[in-house]
Simulated assay, not measured.
Amino acid sequence: MITYPHLKNGATIGVTAASSGVPVELHEIVKLASTRLEQKGFRVVCGDTVWTQKKAKSAPAVKRAAEFNEMMESHEVDIIIPPWGGELLVEILEHIDFENMKNKWVLGYSDTSALLLAITLRTGIATAHGTNLVDLRGECSDGTTAMWQKVLSCKPGESVLQKSSDYYQKEWRHDNPSPCVFHLTEPTRWKSVSNGDVKIKGRLLGGCIDIIRHLIGTPFGDVQSFRNTFLGGGPIIWYLENCELNTTDLRRSLVQMKLAGWFEHCSGLLFGRSPANTPVDNYTVEDVYHTLSDELGIPIIYDIDCGHVPPQITFINGAYAEVEAVEGKGTVLQYFRP
């Protein structure tokens, strides 16, 4: 059975840098994001790791893990949101206390997705793949990003519907800040390998493929045991997004997932828009998707609202979902079923 946390009004948000911290010159954006959330009625508590960054991490692995464990076990903290992702979160997994975790949300993406997936696979506690803290610093949020609060406020047994964005951001323009942080200029269109309408049903699992692939073969990536223990053997929908991989590295990673059994009992795959996916010798990302769909005999929807090309839908690891792509528009209906 999957256990779902519940975000209450006036919740206390714990901010800890499980991967990268924030350099001094960017401390103001964390403070601004905290202020915006406090204006919405939240209380924000930042750990020491948030304010430091050295050698590709906020602090040594043991310190990062200890701060995260403390917030997970604290009665004062209701939800944990890292400031952003980073590079070396994988170092802390062996120091995380999975046995004594309280039932609370962890929200984020990018490098954080390794922690999200590991928590859900090991404990059956649902985790949230979506916005990070610094992207909540705007005067407002676009409709897609803003759904994080409604999604995490659902109670067990309830459902929540999210729709594809109208527009997505093609490039960051830090020199010209937007009231809503993102510059949403390009029309969103969800696509499918079949070029037709697609509907997929199953339990959601996923994250940044650059990161979660490193859980394969470790105690933190046992998908088969998770299915047997917490899902009763039901089908899985994988949602994946690519941060930095070219098409051949993406293909290698997907083959590794397949050979490791991660795609067994998979009802379909979802791929987010990507700033990477660089072709190699005319081998395109569409080639990757078509080959994988043929091999697995399942539908694939791509260019969805997930990952490093904002905005993004809030996906709940462990939730039962019905995902549709119809004439370029998408819907994700998530049920908080045990």
Rank of each mutant, 00 (worst) to 15 (best):
K31H: 12
A33M: 11
A33C: 05
S34R: 15
T35K: 15
R36P: 12
L37S: 07
Q39E: 13
G41V: 09
R43G: 04
V44N: 07
G47W: 05
D48G: 05
T49M: 01
W51Q: 00
T52C: 01
S58C: 02
S58G: 08
S58N: 00
P60G: 06
P60A: 03
P60Q: 03
V62P: 00
V62L: 10
V62A: 10
V62T: 10
V62H: 04
K63F: 04
K63N: 10
K63Y: 10
K63Q: 12
R64N: 06
R64Q: 01
E67R: 01
E67K: 02
F68R: 00
E70V: 13
M71E: 00
D78F: 03
D78R: 03
I79T: 05
P83C: 13
W84A: 07
W84C: 08
W84I: 07
W84H: 12
G86I: 08
G86P: 07
G86Q: 02
E87D: 15
L88P: 05
V90F: 12
V90R: 13
E91A: 14
E91W: 06
E94D: 14
H95Q: 15
I96F: 11
D97H: 11
D97G: 03
D97R: 05
F98W: 09
E99S: 14
M101R: 09
M101E: 06
K102P: 05
K102C: 01
N103F: 12
N103C: 15
V106G: 04
V106S: 03
V106R: 06
V106E: 04
G108Y: 07
G108F: 10
S110P: 09
S110A: 11
D111L: 03
T112W: 14
T112E: 15
T112S: 15
S113E: 11
A114E: 15
A114H: 14
A114I: 15
A114M: 15
A118C: 08
I119L: 11
T120D: 11
T120K: 13
L121F: 12
R122E: 12
T123Y: 01
T123H: 08
A126I: 06
A128G: 05
H129S: 13
T131K: 02
N132P: 00
V134L: 04
V134T: 07
D135I: 02
L136A: 01
R137M: 04
R137V: 00
G138C: 06
G138Y: 08
C140W: 04
D142Q: 09
G143T: 09
G143Y: 11
T144I: 08
T145R: 08
T145V: 03
Q149F: 10
K150T: 12
S153D: 05
K155H: 11
P156C: 12
P156E: 07
G157R: 10
E158H: 09
K163Q: 09
K163H: 14
K163I: 08
K163S: 09
S164K: 09
S165Y: 01
Y167R: 14
Y168K: 04
Y168W: 13
Y168V: 07
E171M: 02
N176G: 03
N176S: 14
N176W: 13
N176Q: 14
N176F: 14
P177L: 12
S178K: 10
P179G: 13
